[in-house]
Design a protein around this nucleic acid. Structure first.
Lengths: 357, 357
DNA sequence: CACACAAATGTAATCGATTACATAGCGCGA
DNA sequence: TCGCGCTATGTAATCGATTACATTTGTGTG
């Protein structure tokens, strides 16, 4: 009774259908090569026995894993969930399983990645983490496995593989242009972590855009953050303590923007009346905060989908586009209610319509 | 040049070390059974050749997969990220890989689950989705695979497997007690989806608690929601339109609570001055909203960790606790700033200290 | 009618590890 | 000295599929 019925094997099916194992296997993998009669016999036998292909055996023989590794820096960060979701959707639809690993969690994370690729437990890697150790890079190069890796969101310039990303510089420019168009000339920036490629790119783009607009940005107005909620609060405290306070703030993440705003409100500073705020990402909550957050939307589902599709194309050999090419997912400014003309301009309505360039 | 060096196999290592493949295998799996000299020879050869155990071969032979499937209802929901993260942490530390699937994504989701378990591509299943189809239940029962499944957060009473969860009734009671202690007697509830076990349990507990306190809850005050941000807005609109408006609202999720509050503020209703709000979950943003959200904290890392540990215990045969037992992760009321005494009581301070029972 | 060729199916090698069983070497007590 | 038992290692079967190659059957052609 408590005996566990052994899983039926291909031999059992073959026997039940009165054919050879080869025929059963072919019914599953190349049904068009069998006569209709046999094919049906086999499928009936499969039904009857409840047969399932043993994955390990198939993988061993075919030297494929049918799985993709997704490397996430901090799985606990909800920003990644939509990306993971769309990656999953595309891969699952193509018969691949999705393995996830948190690249910050284990000292052994570098080990894990190259291990998985080298020992055949996955066919490819999508990494949302732009930091790639030298060891990993070298290992991938040696094993000639570069074409089975793609970056998503983040990237590293040292690893020549395809990269799916938002145009962060463009997004930053949209944010700055928007604020400048409203009349702001004193704009602060709360950055991402210095070691993060996105943080660096957005910060550099911010400086460049401000320079292009001829804005005079005080060094103090570049406030180091780390994308986190806590960083937004800290940034608000710093700005509210400043002698010459900027009239607008561009935050490198929505999380920082939202907590920045909360802290301002808590300290009696009104957004956007007293200070305008622009975020980056367009997380779900951005549309539902009060006031609703003006931000730069990253197409998270699109990023995931494109990355998955790109990887699949490479795995299936469409090397039409081998190497380190970049694909940009669409990005856009979502104007909501945390930006307005600066107070000084509102006092001189003449300048509001056509703000000084 | 572009030849891809074939991965070294165990035979290559054996040859390099001058031993048999059995010895190499033993060096990897039961090193204590080898003499120190041989063991070192083998490890050097492994180093030298860059050998990695082929997973498919090992899995085939050992009839293990070294992987666990985590089934998530809606991967895009950030609530799950912390849980997934801690599941991952525990499993990775124990040498297991983590496969994720979104149970809402594919019509084939039921297929996927039983497939994965039956074809040996995973050793166990942690499901965050309480809805289990009859087919799946039957399949699991037939294959005697129940002991390789655990529920986390959600559950189904029809599947007798271990369940790691928060004490939702207790959490609800904490919320209601808190509001009642503040003097509220007119409390609304924004529910989760009717088809969701958590939504139902919290709603039932809410009704029971209110009854226990002798509160008179109008049917209208039970507002159907679905945990989403949009539902919070809709609920706010409904409540603000009511003739007899409740003085407090218990929302079945933080997402609904936060968007509920935003909508109230937007419509000029102040929280907690005009209406008190309690959430459920304690998501990251709850502490950083303005006002900071009073809520019931679920220990998400704890839920994930316990589920992973429970599953590992079962897989390793510690069937000390076989069957459908329930493990509760700690839950607590986090008092922040979205609750206060109702306006009516503030006018009669005499009643504030000891509100009428 | 014989032969070439294609289609359908079977036989058995193969993927790369683990491990049951066999063997060799060694120490120790009788 | 013999033999028992223990340790260290080797030999070869095994896990369960896929697939190269062989074989059979059927079909069209000169």
């Amino acid at each position: 009774m408590r005996m566990q019925k052994a899983q039926p094997k291909i031999k059992d099916v073959a026997h039940a259908a009165g054919v050879s194992t080869a025929t059963v296997s072919r019914a599953l993998t190349q049904p068009e090569r069998l006569s209709e009669a046999t094919r049906e016999k086999v499928f009936e036998a499969i039904q009857a026995t409840g047969y399932r292909v043993n994955r390990a055996a198939r993988n061993l023989r075919t030297r494929r894993a049918g799985a993709i590794l997704v490397l996430v820096p901090n799985l606990g960060n909800p920003f990644f969930s939509h990306i993971l979701s769309s990656i999953n959707e595309v891969l699952a639809a193509n018969g691949y399983s999705v393995l996830v690993f948190d690249s910050q969690q284990h000292g052994a994370s570098e080990q894990v990645v190259s291990d998985c690729l080298l020992n055949g437990s996955v066919d490819g890697l999508i990494t949302l983490d732009g930091r790639v150790s030298d060891v990993t890079r070298q290992t991938l190069k040696n094993a000639n496995m570069m074409r089975q890796v793609v970056f998503c969101c983040e990237w590293s310039d040292h690893l020549p593989v395809p990269s799916i990303r938002s145009d962060n510089a463009l997004g930053t420019q949209m944010a700055v242009d928007h604020l400048v168009a409203l009349g702001h000339r004193a704009i602060a920036h709360v950055t991402g972590p210095a070691e993060n490629i996105l943080g660096r790119v957005r910060k550099d783009a911010f400086s460049a855009c401000c320079a292009a607009h001829g804005l005079d940005i005080l060094p103090d107005w570049i406030i180091p953050g780390d994308f986190s909620l806590a960083a937004g609060v800290a940034a608000a405290d710093r700005i509210l303590a400043m002698g010459t306070r900027p009239t607008a703030v561009f935050c490198a993440s929505d999380a920082m923007a939202l907590s920045f705003i909360s802290r301002c409100q808590q300290r009696g500073v009104s957004v956007p009346h007293d200070i305008s705020v622009v975020g980056f990402d367009d997380i779900d909550l951005a549309a539902f905060s009060q006031p609703a957050l003006t931000t730069i939307r990253q197409d998270r589902p699109g990023l995931g989908r494109l990355a998955a599709e790109e990887l699949l194309a490479h795995l299936h050999g469409d090397q039409k586009s081998d190497g380190p090419h970049v694909i940009y997912a669409p990005i856009s400014l979502i104007e909501r209610s945390t930006t307005s003309a600066p107070a000084a301009l509102r006092a001189e309505p003449g300048r509001v319509a056509k703000p000084a360039i």
